[in-house]
Simulated assay, not measured.
Amino acid sequence: MGHDDLPTLELAFPGPERDRGVAAIQNGQKTALTGLLEIYEHAGEAVPAAGQRFAVLDSEGSPAVTIELVDVRVVPMKEIDDDFARAEGRGYRDAAAWQAAHEEFFRSAGVSEFLGRTPDVGDDTLVVAQRFRAVGTDAP
């Protein structure tokens, strides 16, 4: 199956944040990602499952790398541990730093605009914690 046949996945919003995330997947630093469950529900999207593959898009909307999910859990933010936080490949030193950054992002203007309100985010907020492996680089 080529990347044209795969569902797509976009990290953060287009720009430097997304570009750093895509590069971190390509170089093996990023092997986990987190989504706010409320975003999936608002979009009417099912929570992904282990075994699913996605074409990760770059800031131009082009497939950059293909990933395969190896573990997917819906958990409260407080259950994210240091190992998962570091696997996000963003330089988080521990789960507390991961949580602070994700709370800020989930309350950002872009997320609030998509949801139509600013979500309440804290220890008990449900997130979709996903571990994956890169299975192909789609960039030339």
Rank of each mutant, 00 (worst) to 15 (best):
K30V: 00
F84P: 00
M77I: 15
E104F: 12
G89F: 01
A109G: 13
V47C: 03
D81G: 13
V135W: 08
A97R: 10
R107W: 02
D94G: 10
V121K: 01
K78I: 15
V75Q: 10
E88P: 04
V74Y: 01
G15A: 09
L126M: 10
V135S: 11
L11G: 01
P16I: 10
E79S: 13
P119T: 02
G2P: 15
L115S: 07
F13Y: 10
E88N: 11
E68I: 06
L69F: 13
A100P: 00
T31I: 15
M1I: 10
V70A: 08
G91Q: 14
A23M: 00
T125V: 02
V75A: 05
A129L: 08
Q99T: 15
P48K: 14
I39P: 03
K30S: 02
E113A: 13
A85E: 02
V135A: 06
G89I: 01
E113P: 04
T8R: 12
E103P: 03
E79A: 12
T66K: 07
L115G: 07
L6S: 12
A12R: 15
Y40N: 04
D83Y: 05
D4F: 07
E60Y: 08
L6Q: 10
S62Q: 15
R93P: 10
I80W: 06
A95H: 13
P14A: 14
D120I: 12
E10T: 15
P48G: 09
D138C: 15
E88C: 10
I25S: 00
G116D: 02
L9A: 11
R53G: 07
G122P: 05
V22P: 01
S108I: 01
A95Q: 02
R53N: 06
L36P: 06
S59A: 12
A50Y: 13
G44M: 14
P140E: 10
G21K: 03
A134P: 01
